[in-house]
Simulated assay, not measured.
Amino acid sequence: MRDEDAIRLGFAGDVMLGRLIDDRQRKRSVAAVWGNVETHLEALDGLFINLECCLSARGTPWTDTYRPFHFRADPDWAIPALNAVGVDWTNLANNHMLDYGPDALRDTISYLDEAEIAHSGAGTDAKSARAPAFVSVDDLDIAFVSFTDNTPEFAAESDSPGTAHVEFDVTDDKAARIVGDSLAQAREANPDLLVASLHWGPNMRTEPTVEFREFARWLTEQGVDVVHGHSAHVFQGVEIVDGTVVMYDTGDFLDDYAVDSERRNDRSFVFELTVEDGDCTELRLHPTEIYDLAVHEAEHYASNWSMQRMDTLSSAFGTQFEREDDGLVLSI
């Protein structure tokens, strides 16, 4: 039984609101993208996502290097949709933030700021891209730092906008210094919870690399409480490292992507973390699936498939979930 004073924080993977979803949303209600999970998301005390597109009506597709896909959503509906389910913070360190150039990135930041949705991982220069974001949920103060190893051509520089880019390698002195500086800046605010949100690795990888696991351990040593991973488009296992909750990849939560029939990038979870007295005490996974250009509670077969797969992937790290109420539960 969870304490009534416990704080429930929801983490989700990639949320891509562009392309076919953007087209459909011009003909349906703002909250339609959240399908039948809208009520669940609204009930969470905090909700955190990776925003896998820019929010703008401006800009031109990035052509400096070959890019087969460009993602952009109309902020006139996208911001109200994020507000409808109470998104509190979003990661911007990913490989689609500059799909429509620096003007669209600046618009994304401006619209999020106006909506009072915190963000980290991209900015008008390297300093702002690497800066932590801060969110208060009830009486819980949370700090976020965000980085990506994707698309180095999108990296912010001292005098140009872009993403917070590093190579996730603990033997890379530059990466350790850059990420370490951001974490130190976050710790100066003395947050109750420190989250590292990382857009790392290639598409469709079902397990983290040895290098990523080593980096997660290094983050634990730096005082990180939660690692919020994304990028693979498929969920990966969960590991608890000295009390740190490591969600190596939270998968795809909402998009219009073609579905891999084996890896099932249309299936994932709401990763619901319970915090009591400043400590992470429980992780609940609620299976979801994407269809009709919206996210939904996973139906029976898809739900069982996802739970069994998460069990298998996580058990390799010594993580043992329990099944409860059509979901997975892990005591921390």
Rank of each mutant, 00 (worst) to 15 (best):
S231Q: 10
H230S: 02
V224L: 06
L219C: 14
D225H: 15
I240V: 13
R213Y: 04
S231M: 06
E214N: 12
W218C: 03
A232K: 02
Q222A: 09
T220G: 13
G237E: 06
V227W: 02
V210N: 11
E221L: 15
V234D: 01
H228S: 15
H233V: 01
H230D: 00
G229M: 00
Q236L: 10
E221W: 12
T209S: 09
F215W: 11
W218V: 06
F215C: 15
G237H: 12
V241S: 10
R213I: 11
G237N: 04
V224S: 06
V224Q: 04
G229Y: 00
E221I: 03
T220Q: 13
H228F: 07
V226H: 07
F212W: 13
V227G: 02
A232S: 11
E211R: 10
E211C: 05
T220P: 00
H233C: 02
F212M: 14
A216E: 15
V234M: 01
I240F: 05
F212D: 10
G237Q: 08
I240K: 04
H230V: 00
Q236C: 04
F215I: 12
V238Q: 03
Q222N: 06
W218P: 04
I240Y: 03
L219F: 08
V224Y: 03
H230K: 10
F235V: 15
H233E: 00
G229W: 00
V226Y: 07
E214S: 14
H230N: 06
Q236K: 13
H230Q: 03
P208G: 13
T209C: 14
Q236T: 07
G229S: 06
G223K: 14
P208H: 08
Q236N: 04
F235T: 10
E221M: 09
W218T: 01
E211H: 15
F235E: 07
Q222P: 02
E239M: 10
V224H: 12
T209I: 07
V238C: 05
P208S: 14
G237Y: 07
F212A: 15
V241M: 04
W218I: 06
T220R: 13
